[in-house]
Design a binder for these strands. Structure first.
Length: 270
DNA sequence: AGTCGCGCCTGGCGGC
DNA sequence: TGCCGCCAGGCGCGAC
């Protein structure tokens, strides 16, 4: 399931191949993704050149002369660059063809992903209300302290609230709370400033590390080279219910918070 | 205004 | 072996 690191890896992987490509045609095999693909997307993209790629939260932005293609990978989405025509795979919902004869395919078994076009992506409805980037300087103790002070929800739910901070999904929320020694069920405004400082450091560290290692993957994610990420091998609590804690050997617990599985060690995380 | 529960969708897995 | 039912998970939205 792609989180911020996976999207960043996809972006970095695709960028060299996509820069300067000019859209020729778009083949839509399934228009009902998380949001229906807009009807005019073919005409909007045709003959437009790709200038750059960027990322906002888990949204990948393919920036053109006239606006941006906004792609979300949902839970199971992946993008692949193909230098020449190839057989359409199951769940290849959209295939972009470039004038060079190369292709970009959007594959997404669960169809939680989406594809949009916007002339001004920063004010696009899916983007404009997003919180701060966790790897930016805006994600600092003053910011998180203020957010926590006025929050009645648990720290894990606050971390996963994309109006607060983007890109921290279920896996990295669980992992960073473990490293910071904070119980995911702890109410946000009851956590000390000192602990929050540590939490910020751990989030930044773990996301950077995951990007470096090539992204994590539980089941569905493959990066743009088609290789499985291997960060999953270094997950310490996520999906490890009843396995021993790496620090103290206590059995890892699983609880549901906000409809999501959360994993933690009740001895190491207070 | 902040928080919570719902539903979209498919593949994989456990149970019989 | 085959089929069924359940579950995961991102995230916008409506309800409170």
């Amino acid at each position: 399931m792609p989180e911020l690191p996976e999207v960043e890896i996809t972006k970095r992987g695709l960028e060299p191949s996509l820069i300067n490509q000019i859209f020729d045609n778009i083949f839509i095999y399934q228009e009902n993704l998380r949001w229906p693909i807009q009807k005019n997307i073919k005409s909007v993209l045709r003959n437009k050149k790709i200038l750059s790629l960027s990322r906002r939260g888990k949204y990948l932005l393919i920036n053109l002369e006239n606006g941006s293609l906004i792609i979300h990978l949902g839970m199971s989405g992946s993008l692949k660059f193909l230098s020449k025509h190839s057989i359409k795979l199951k769940h290849d919902h959209v295939i972009f063809r470039f004038c060079s004869g190369s292709y970009l395919t959007f594959n997404d078994p669960r169809r939680f992903g989406s594809i949009h076009f916007s002339k001004e992506p920063n004010s696009f409805w899916l983007i404009k209300n997003l919180g701060v980037e966790p790897l930016s300087d805006e994600f600092n103790i003053d910011f998180l302290w203020k957010k926590c002070k006025k929050s009645k929800s648990t720290i894990k739910q606050l971390l996963m609230n994309h109006k607060v901070v983007v890109g921290v999904g279920n896996i990295y929320a669980s992992e960073s709370l473990f490293y910071a020694g904070i119980n995911p069920r702890k109410i946000a405004h009851k956590i000390s400033k000192k602990k929050l400082v540590l939490l910020i450091t751990e989030i930044k560290t773990i996301l950077s590390k995951a990007i470096k290692l090539g992204g994590s993957s539980i089941r569905d994610f493959t990066n743009s080279n088609g290789k499985m990420g291997y960060f999953q091998q270094s997950l310490v609590v996520y999906n490890r219910e009843n396995e021993p804690c790496v620090k103290c050997n206590t059995k890892i617990k699983r609880v549901i918070l906000g409809q999501r599985s959360s994993f933690y060690c009740y001895k190491c995380q207070k």
